[in-house]
Each structure stands twice: as structure tokens, then as C-alpha cells.
Design a binder for these strands. Structure first.
Lengths: 142, 142
DNA sequence: GTATGTGCAAAACCTTTGCAGGTTA
DNA sequence: TAACCTGCAAAGGTTTTGCACATAC
């Protein structure tokens, strides 16, 4: 049985999509659900592999299309913390991220605030990403 | 005739490479020079296209190998400010970057300091990247 | 001379695209 | 029903790899 709080957040995002005139198709709904239930900053491939077990007909194209749409609408944040591939974060509250260069884990960082700037040297700021790289607590210990 | 200050910086980086036991081959030297003379955060492709005019025998593989080596040694910083491809910055002094989502220009940002943290939630921090995205001054005006 | 690096071409990998068929509102 | 979306397969673009030859020290 699903967490009530999570269910409420999900409904909020669904409402946001409806407001924006987005058609609520099966791929979009199950990807949204997946992101809430797996807030581990998954890649498109991880989402695809997990979902195709339960929904064998889903395609890679739909995963990529949906993630791109969600990013454009601000429903998810696309992280470019890795060179190879994008990762997706359903938590769109501004926050930093830490990537362990040893184990590859990615952590949310709420301890260090993002610089909140509307303008820098005459440039209008719309979004901000702050990435830290190093050795995570688990890898430091071992 | 080349700037004397630039020549000095170049010699410093060459010395750093020698110290680290890196063989100073032609591709490595000309890429280093290129980066100093073109501090525009070029991509591997841009470097390749520019250099092959003067050194037709240079290969893509050498560009990629060299950039990876330089990044590992801390001679350049690899920017993941764009999803599609990496960009390289010879200025390894910690600083932020701004990318214009309209024209694609990438600016150095010295006005906003990077958070200087050695440790976050028990994780050991080694490097930090701060990226701003928005509309640049030139695009705002037009 | 020997370890190390280069150049070439092909492969690997992530992401996008075109289009016929299907689904949502 | 009409607009929009999905799934499939192929293509596109960046980066990596294997190997014979070449080069730096």
C-alpha cells in the first residue's frame, strides 16, 4: 500500500500537468510514479529497464520524450552531474548534489544553499545547478 | 608575437606536466597552447577542427585522450554545463559558469564565489561546479 | 632501447527522429 | 472525431577502444 503523503505529491504533479494542458497518457503517468517511488536520481535507461518489466510495451522513445517534456515543464530537474548520461530528480526544490567518484552514488545536499541570484553581470538567471564531487561517507569509511 | 604573460602560464603548465612524469608529445603541447590562446571553453570537436588545419595528422583520439589526461591531472577543468558534450576550461581557478540558453554562449562568473567546503554530511569534497543558466546580457538587449 | 603515446577506423553508447498506428479528451 | 502521443527501428552525435606504428626520454 502506498504512502499517503507520496500519493498527495503525485496528485499535485498530475494536476500541474493537467493545468499545462498535457495529455495524461500511460507512459507519462507511470514514469511520474516511478520517479516518486525511486528518488534515486535514475537515468533514462534505469527507468526504462524497471518499467518494461511491468509494462513490456513501453519504448525507450517514450521515456526520453517524457523526461524531456517533464524537464521543460519543470516537473523534474535534469542533472548533468555525470558526463555520460542525464539523471532525473523529481524533487524540484532548489538543492545541490554530491557525486561520489568512487561508488557513483548521488546524494541530495540540503546543507549547502544554492546561490539565489536573479542576475549576474547583466545576465538573467533562470536556473542554477551546484554539483560537488568527492568521496562519500560510505567510501571514506571503507 | 605571443603575449609574454601567456607564455609564462604555458611554461608553468608544461612544468606541471613534466613533474607528473607526463611525456610532452606534440599533440599534448599543441592542445595546451590552443586552450591558452582560445579560452572560450571549447569542445573536443572545436579543438580538433582548429588544430587539424595546422597539424593535419592529428587524430580525434589524441584530442580525447589528451583532454581526459589533462582533466585527471587537474591541468584543465571539464565542464558538464551542456548535456550534449563536454567543454574544457584552462583556467582551473575555482569559478562558476553561466550558459545562455538562447545563444549558447558560456561565460566565466567570478562575481559569485563557489561554496568552499571540504566536507558535506560526512562526504569528502574534492571538486565543485556551479552552473547558472538563463538569458545573457546580449540576448536580453536584443 | 624501451616505455609510452599516436593515428586510424570501427565500435560503443546515449539520445533523437520519422512515421504508421493507437489513444486521450 | 481531431489532436496528440506511442512504439519501433534506424539514425545521429559524442566518446571510447584495439592495434600497428611512431616518438620522447
Amino acid at each position: 500500500m502506498r504512502d499517503r503523503k507520496l500519493e498527495k505529491q503525485l496528485e499535485e504533479k498530475r494536476a500541474l500537468l493537467r493545468e499545462k494542458g498535457v495529455v495524461l497518457t500511460t507512459p507519462r503517468l507511470i514514469i511520474l510514479e516511478y520517479l516518486f517511488e525511486n528518488p534515486i536520481h535514475p537515468t533514462a535507461e534505469e527507468i526504462y529497464n524497471s518499467l518494461k518489466r511491468r509494462f513490456p510495451s513501453i519504448s525507450q522513445a517514450s521515456i526520453y520524450n517524457t523526461l524531456k517534456l517533464f524537464t521543460k515543464l519543470g516537473v523534474v530537474t535534469e542533472l548533468m552531474i555525470e558526463k555520460e548520461k542525464a539523471r532525473y530528480d523529481i524533487n524540484t526544490t532548489p538543492h545541490a548534489h554530491f557525486k561520489c567518484i568512487k561508488c557513483g552514488r548521488i546524494y541530495d545536499v540540503f546543507e549547502v544553499p544554492l546561490p539565489q541570484r536573479e542576475e549576474i553581470s547583466g545576465h538573467k538567471v533562470l536556473t542554477t545547478q551546484l554539483y560537488f564531487y568527492g568521496i562519500c561517507q560510505k567510501c571514506v569509511q571503507s
